[in-house]
Simulated assay, not measured.
Amino acid sequence: MSEAWVTDGELLAAQERFAAQIPGFVMPVAYGVARADASVLSFGHVNAPGAVRPLPAVVLASVCGYVATTGVYRLDHAQFAKVVERLAPAEAATHMPHPNLWSWRDLLTDAGADSTFLGFFVAAVDDPPVDQYDAQFRHLLAP
């Protein structure tokens, strides 16, 4: 890893750089990732309303295509590996945990040849689920 984001200022600058590359980007109210193995979903860290970590959200969006609309975005192994690679410099900020990065690495490590990944973005809390996978994700957001 050649780049390292150590300070809060560096993390914020990285977030702003990624967001600037996505015209119209709107921070989601909730997001997460799951690995799909056949019809079974294994979820990584869930970023529920009120607990969204912005940098991982915008890094994930930069690869999967989220801009401002609730949706489920499919990623192949290489695309999801790119997300993890792009977020890795944040780990240099040792003064805070990185649950998205850590859980996403686990999802990637445990992936099989037929695994795919799903990025979930919820733009507004009252948006209905877009499919059955999104419904499973929304269940995890319930208090």
Rank of each mutant, 00 (worst) to 15 (best):
E3M: 14
E3T: 12
V6Y: 03
T7D: 09
T7E: 04
D8L: 10
L11S: 10
A13F: 05
A14Q: 05
A14S: 05
E16K: 14
R17L: 03
A19G: 05
A20Q: 14
Q21N: 12
I22W: 10
P23F: 08
G24Q: 05
M27Q: 15
V29H: 02
V33S: 10
R35F: 05
L41M: 14
S42D: 14
A48E: 06
G50E: 11
V52R: 01
V52S: 02
R53D: 07
R53I: 08
P54M: 00
P54A: 13
L55M: 11
G65K: 12
T70V: 08
V72N: 08
R74C: 02
H77N: 11
A78R: 15
Q79C: 02
Q79H: 00
V84W: 10
R86D: 04
L87S: 08
A88M: 11
A88V: 04
P89W: 11
A90M: 06
P97R: 09
H98T: 07
N100Y: 10
L101N: 03
L101P: 00
L101C: 01
L101S: 07
D106F: 04
D110R: 15
G112T: 13
G119L: 10
A123Y: 07
D126T: 06
P128I: 03
P128Y: 07
V130W: 05
D131A: 03
Y133K: 09
Y133W: 15
Y133I: 00
D134I: 00
D134R: 08
F137D: 07
A142C: 01
